[in-house]
Write a protein that binds this DNA or RNA. Structure first.
Ligand SMILES: [Mn+2]
Ligand SMILES: [Mn+2]
Ligand SMILES: [Mn+2]
Ligand SMILES: [Mn+2]
Lengths: 219, 219
DNA sequence: ATTAATTTTTAGCTATATCTAAATAGTTAC
DNA sequence: GTAACTATTTAGATATAGCTAAAAATTAAT
């Protein structure tokens, strides 16, 4: 069973919105995440339903099937492996990789995916800290919380970002926040949720909005 | 100006059939080279004409324009760079790369192409011996003749193959012919054009059909 | 110079992927 | 429990890319 590039993009969006198959997903949510119109989504989910990668009951949203999850995970695997390739081998900055990976993830060649994985030394995480599914679709899950959920005096390590947009990532570069950095929450302003953290002997202030897009493993 | 993937594939075919813009190309030739029908080609060349990458006069075939040649050369450049990547870095055999490169050549990212070129150390030829255009579309041309055109006792070096099909390349692997091999023509059968050559102290017999798909620089 | 053969184009159909506008189903508020 | 609002689907367009069958133009043969 094969999907078109566009079908793969929709399926991937549905997988992410469903939080790995846990929730059902609405037409409007798919439309806004894909930047298309609800009418286009209605057409597409009918097709994805026919191909049995989602269960679709008119007016009641969609659930991704087991088969759909496996398919989505293979696309995500390719996306993240290419991102690692671009950063590790071609010296792309982490804010330059997403769009290119959006294209590369659709290249169809199981041999290519396997060899790329090998060449990159079987990486477990992409440049944004997201886990890379293995060839069977298995993902190493870590218990992560967002920086905005931490308590004052708690320490931990930045392990991922929720937002992979160039604007956000360049801001993190500028202030000196990066995947792997050890941090400690120094202060939290109750009024607006903005925080003060310690990173590499430096004090950093950030808004709640920024903090909520940084993921931490507490330790 | 951007072309769709399908338009890029047609333009590349037209470029190759025209021998780098030297000849005009017929609808039927494009159709057979693209494995589509003449009716589909008529539609496509009308579109390519509108985008001014070819000159098209109904019933009189097409000529690729200057702009069309530059565009085609950039696609060819990407195709061949990816082939080098697959063979040099991912240990693909030379008969496994063409189909994958057909997909990768359409990835749109000037930065990717430039960095890939750099990463591969600015290769001048692909795994089949075809020259890789530089970023300006300039190609290093070498005076090559086919093995079937050589004279008895002439010596030279295999520099490229005309046919990149897996079947042909695996046959060459089996008999021990490869790009870079020094050869000498020992004998030629007038009746059917079949030949006998010396490669690495070994004598090899091959049909005219095979010999005409092997390109030589005489020396 | 006609006629015949070949090549090319056009007409009309299918499939994908998108859109806007209109219709309809479902949900919420009173 | 009906009215109002919101979400979703359907209808009808447009654009791409392919096909077959029929028409038209070019080229070749007599
Ligand atoms: Mn990404
Ligand atoms: Mn994509
Ligand atoms: Mn291609
Ligand atoms: Mn090649």
């Amino acid at each position: 069973m094969t999907l078109t590039n566009s079908e793969e993009n929709y399926l991937k969006a549905i997988y992410h919105l469903s939080e790995a198959g846990k929730k059902s997903v609405s037409t409007n949510d798919i439309a806004s995440s894909m930047k298309t119109k609800p009418a286009s989504v209605s057409d597409m989910i009918r097709k994805l339903g026919a191909k049995e990668v989602i269960n679709y009951r008119k007016y009641y949203g969609v659930q991704i099937t087991e088969e759909g999850q496996n398919y989505a995970l293979q696309v995500i695997r390719k996306h993240r492996l290419w991102e690692v390739f671009l950063v590790d081998k071609l010296k792309f900055n982490w804010d330059e990789v997403h769009e290119v990976a959006e294209q590369l993830e659709h290249v169809r060649s199981p041999l290519l995916t396997q060899r790329l994985d090998e060449y990159l030394n079987f990486p477990k995480f992409d440049p944004h800290g997201d886990p890379i599914p293995d060839e069977f679709g298995d993902v190493k899950a870590r218990p992560r919380i967002s920086l905005s959920e931490m308590e004052v005096d708690q320490a931990g390590q930045i392990v991922a970002v929720k937002d992979s947009s160039a604007a956000f990532l360049r801001y993190l570069d500028k202030v000196g926040a990066y995947i792997g950095a050890r941090i400690k929450l120094l202060d939290k302003v109750e009024f607006d949720g903005s925080i003060e953290i310690l990173v590499d002997q430096k004090t950093l202030f950030m808004s709640k909005d920024v903090a909520s897009n940084i993921l931490i493993v507490v330790s």
